[in-house]
Design a binder for these strands. Structure first.
Lengths: 250, 250
DNA sequence: GAAGGTGATTCGACTCTGCCGGAACTGAAT
DNA sequence: ATTCAGTTCCGGCAGAGTCGAATCACCTTC
């Protein structure tokens, strides 16, 4: 983890991040927000334009569809993504709720694909969205199949930050839950990331028992009672299982 | 169009492009492919890793899901995308074929969204995919509503490159077709981009008659005869129209 | 298990280039 | 006309990127 850097690269991507997060803006507005000299920001934006990753429309600088392209291409190369293909849609249809495929990246859970079932509530869930592992069902599903040292290291680096009032903030509680995930074969989260939301997730393991991702179903608490939970857990576990089998053929 | 650049930024994105296109690779492999010194490539990859846009998995460098995230965020900000929402799915279901939403960016047609109908053939179509304007139905639909000088300028810059044997390579023929697009309200392409494929596309205009995008349906020639074409044209025109109306409310 | 090979990583001095203050410019608004 | 906010241009200097060479890491082969 030397972390050798390069000022220009760093700054270029800082600009990209800013454009992505708060929407485009003018040169001086961006300079203000990032606390950089205007002329420098201008230089960078110009450089980014020549790469094709940024444009200037309507007096505003914007990221281009190049990011979509790169993102989709790399997603297409991910084995889990290919292996899960139709399963995710089936899950969404069967449960009626939001079905997502997530992977772990840089100690976070990242959504790779989303399928909205017929009754899905409108979540702020899109491919690429990231969230802390400990605060979500899919995150816990994945943590449960990582070596304990890895889990410790993650807690060490990022802490157990509370996202809602119900987020797990105690390591012991977390480890207990991970144990029960391993026993039951699925993880559950009740308003630990979004108040009023229940999520149920199953881990996807490969043949050497490495964790590769998780399939997750989310819906409003009111609609998901005890029996419904078992049903969803079964659906999610089955889908994860099929994916696991597919993985070997990819 | 001064095109002021910045070597570091340029090189960083050249690397990203390379990773996206040909999949990740090792340091020296990438150095070879891009004709750069190994140590330099190593420096850049390290810098890219600290930005979070690249990782090293399995001895291979890979782009991360950050690209997906940035791409999806910016797509979400595009008015056309929001305006078209459900329409695209309806089109896919009604026609049974591949339905796509495209916009123009940097003189090219870019896919923003894809919906596969029940009978859709497996195309290599994904969000972010780019193609020349003159060789596709949606491209022609958009060209038809650009000022002639703009069209001339595009031809000037990129020429009318043949993608298949049926691609339009003659400017006069193109302008004739654009005229008929304006008359009929939709554009058609018969194997001009992909042999054996027929695409039918309608333009999306905003209230000041600016071209904002195009809705397109693609299917195999064998399945799309004369009458089927008219049906599809109607579906596509209606969807574009609804989108146009939605645009005013966004 | 020694030798050889391939590729990744580190190091550091030279030099090129990114940096940014200031000036010029553009185009609204008054 | 004048003002002002924002953008673009310019150019000399310091600091940052560059890349050859050395080292390290890890296979394969004899």
């Amino acid at each position: 983890m030397g972390g050798k850097s390069n000022r220009s690269v760093e700054r270029a991507f800082t600009l990209v991040d800013e454009l992505a997060e708060n929407g485009g803006g003018g040169v001086s507005e961006l300079a203000e927000r990032l606390d950089m000299p205007v002329s420098t920001v201008h230089d960078y934006l110009q450089a980014l334009i020549t790469t094709g990753y940024v444009t200037k429309d309507d007096k505003e600088y914007q990221t281009t569809t190049r990011f979509l392209e790169v993102g989709h291409r790399q997603r297409h190369r991910l084995e889990v993504f290919k292996a899960v293909r139709d399963e995710l849609e089936d899950v969404a249809v069967e449960t009626g709720e939001h079905a997502t495929l997530l992977i772990e990246e840089a100690d976070q859970a990242v959504i790779l694909a989303v399928q909205e079932g017929p009754d899905a509530v409108n979540l702020f869930a899109y491919p690429g969205a990231r969230m802390p592992l400990h605060a979500t069902a899919p995150g816990k599903a994945m943590l449960a199949y990582m070596p304990n040292e890895r889990v410790d290291a993650i807690i060490d680096r990022h802490g157990l930050v509370a996202v809602t009032s119900r987020t797990i903030t105690d390591a012991d509680v977390l480890f207990e839950q991970l144990e029960s995930v391993r026993q039951q074969g699925y993880a559950i989260d009740e308003g630990e990331r979004i108040a009023g939301m229940v999520c149920i997730a199953a881990p996807i393991l490969d043949k050497s028992d490495q964790i590769r991702g998780s399939i997750c179903v989310c819906g409003p608490q009111s609609r998901i009672d005890e029996t419904r939970r078992d049903e969803i857990a079964d659906v999610v576990k089955r889908a994860a299982n099929v994916t696991q089998v597919n993985l070997d053929y990819v």
